[in-house]
Structure formats: structure tokens, C-alpha cells
Nucleic acid binder design. Sequence first.
DNA 1: CGGCGATTTGAATTACATCAATCTAGGTGG
DNA 2: CCACCTAGATTGATGTAATTCAAATCGCCG
Lengths: 213, 213
Amino acid sequence: MKGRHAALDQLRHWRVAAPKGRLIYDEGEPPTAFYRVEAGCVRLQVNCDDGHRQILAFCLPGDIFGVEFDGGRTAAAEASVTSELTRFPICGLTGTSLEAKSMASLVAAASDMVLTLSLHLKGLGHGSAEDRLMWFLDWLADRQGVSRQGGVVQPPMNRRDIADFLGLAQETLSRTFARLEIQRLLSVTDRRRVILRPRPKPTTSDRLFQRAA
Amino acid sequence: MKGRHAALDQLRHWRVAAPKGRLIYDEGEPPTAFYRVEAGCVRLQVNCDDGHRQILAFCLPGDIFGVEFDGGRTAAAEASVTSELTRFPICGLTGTSLEAKSMASLVAAASDMVLTLSLHLKGLGHGSAEDRLMWFLDWLADRQGVSRQGGVVQPPMNRRDIADFLGLAQETLSRTFARLEIQRLLSVTDRRRVILRPRPKPTTSDRLFQRAA
DNA sequence: CGGCGATTTGAATTACATCAATCTAGGTGG
DNA sequence: CCACCTAGATTGATGTAATTCAAATCGCCG
């Protein structure tokens, strides 16, 4: 997956630093560039009018975000932690002359985002708080290249971000961590590292049993 | 918005009919084409292993779906009602020779899907059942070109589909329709047409009041 | 008219949100 | 080096909206 979007390097681009909390672009703003995360973590979020916010996606190293050329920005992008980005300005990118490979990469990048959001919707739709958190940690384990069974993950973002990502209240998230720890599905160490415990693979009979219980 | 993706007509394509319930493509299947809805309604869905399903998006006339060229299909596509589609096969589409305009249309189509899913995530994240249903009906009103205030919409899909789209139980959806009808925010006529009632525009002071109450 | 799926209604339960208070860790300055 | 400070995280108590299981009703098509 590394270097998947290498064809983009033909486009004009440069490095930018984004300190923790920095707004990369805001919702509704006309797009002037798209980005690739080199290090750190960027959150894409929409702010509801009731003061709540929904985080649509976390972008980790290698991820492309902000591929939208017309209309205003769908969501705001902010650095969850101090991050390194590559900025690809879209001068007259929508014009004619553009390497086909680069265009293909853009389609791929947009498709990746669709995949990401789809998985997110799947996680949020049904599923308890425990399901959501385990789903998030599994996702993180995959991205950080550690095993889902016994691996150690370190969420780069704080708990408020995670809660807003999962559509939960912060308190609920905290309680859910505690409950999963009691169930020995994980343990939280210092510096908010999380050890994923091996779990019995859910079989059909397990599921039937759980539904009955 | 009509004919936004006209550049795609340069690509090889043909019409296909999809009777109600027909599977267009299944989750995980390798992509061989993308589609444009000409008439009817297509649902994109993922089936959870617990038997539940989450509908990611409803595609109405003019919408492009299935723009993903590598890996397996993110979600399955099924006709919610008998529909007419245009099928664009991807023979060697990922290759070099491809009209730039067509490619731009694909990027735009993928971006549209990102926007759609983003709005969906926003709706699902927080927000009560009533909020979700009104949001859905507003969306439908926009798509069907009727006013949100006093317009009449006719959801082409059944209530189970709507429930799975909004991440609610069918019973909850039914009760929510009833509650909104009592609040005079809508009324349901025969053939499940829904009349949207005019509602007071929520002002800042209104919102503050509601938070206080 | 009969039958079957879709929808609605009812009652009991549960999971989550909310409000409020406490606890902890990281950073600052004396 | 320690006391303090503040933002972030946890814990507790309580209310409520949504799920669940169950049964009744509606509506369509043969």
C-alpha cells in the first residue's frame, strides 16, 4: 500500500508542516489543493449546528485527502497531532493537459475515501459501543501494521476525537474502554497504548449463543 | 445537475434494465463496470455478519455508482425498485488512452459519492430518530425537486430500506413517522406519499431555547 | 376472498446521553 | 525538585430514547 500514489509526484507539490490543532482547510471553503499525509494524523470533520461535531475520517500516513475540485469543501480538515503533509495545488488541474496516470491516481484516491467512509458507515449504523470501539482498534491495528490479536496500538488522537469519530459521548467511550478491559479483550497501558488481547474467533454457534444470551 | 456527466457518453456504454430486487453486483466481487441510474432507485449496501445490513446510499436518476477499479466491491448494489441503468464497462479503462474529460468526470463522480457518504455520516453520527427521518425526507425533497416546506415526496423504497439507511429499527422508524405526524411536521397519505409541512425556520434564539428546554 | 409480506402498535428492557463531580497526567514557574 | 495548574479522562447517578420481542393490522396480488 506504501507509495501507491507515486504517480502524483509528477504534479507540482511541496511539503507543509501542520502543528497539532491546525486547520488545513475549512468546511465550505473553495478547494485550492489536495494533500497527502506523510506523518501524523489529520481528521476530516463536519460541525453540526448544535455544537456537536462528527469526524468522518482519520487520515494516516500515505492517505490522500481533499480530492474535491468543485463546490465548497465537504468537511473541514484539522491536524489531530503535529503532522507533515504534502500539498498538491490545483491550479488549472481540471483543465485538459494532465498525465493520465495522475488522473487515475486521483480516481483511486477518491475511491479509497469512498471505501473508508463506507466502512465507517457500516461501523456506525448498527453495532453497540463495544463493537464500534473494537472496530476502531482493529482498523488502527491494520493501519499500524500490528496484529489484531496481541498487537499493541497507540491511537495518535485523543479520546474526544475517537468519541466524535465513533458517534459516542466521551463518557460512554471511557466506560467502554473499561468494560472491554474487564472482558479481557484489551488492556490500556501508560501513554494510552492499547494492547489487543487474543479473542476466540466468533463461530456461527457463538453468534447464535450470544443472540440467545 | 442534469447531464453533469455528459462526458461519459464518449465511453462505451449501453442500457440495462434492473427489476426490483435485482443484484447489480455483490460485495467483494471484482469490478467490471460502473453505472449511471436513468430511472428508479438503487441501494448500495453492506451486509453485516450479524444479519443486519447497512444501506450506504440510495442512488437516484443521474447518480453514478460503482466507480472503483481495483480490489473487490466495497458494497453490494441492488435495485430498490425496478430501474433503468446505463452500464459503462471498464475493459482496459485503467490503461493509458482515455479522454481527460472522461477521467475528470470519474473523479467528479467519486467526489460526489464522498459528499453523499459524508452527509450520511453526519446525519447518523449524532441526531435523534426524528432528526434522521426529517433529514432523509429533506434530502428526498431536494432530489425530487419539491419544496421542503409543503412539498410532497414519494419514497421509492420501502420502510425497511429507509430504516436500514438511517440505522434505525423498522419499528422505531414507524413510530417516528407517527410522532412527526402528531407534531404536524408531515402527513402520510395513501401509497406512502409524504407531505412535508411548513415548519418555523430555526433561528439562533430558537436553538438556544431548545437547548434550554 | 384468502394468504402472505409489510407495516404498525404495545409493553418491557437496555444501552446510551447527560449532568456533575472527581481524578490524573503533563507542563509551568517558583 | 516540588507545588501548582489546567486540560483530559474517569466515575457515579439518573433520565430517556431506542431496541427488542410479540401480536395485531393493513394492503397487495393471486
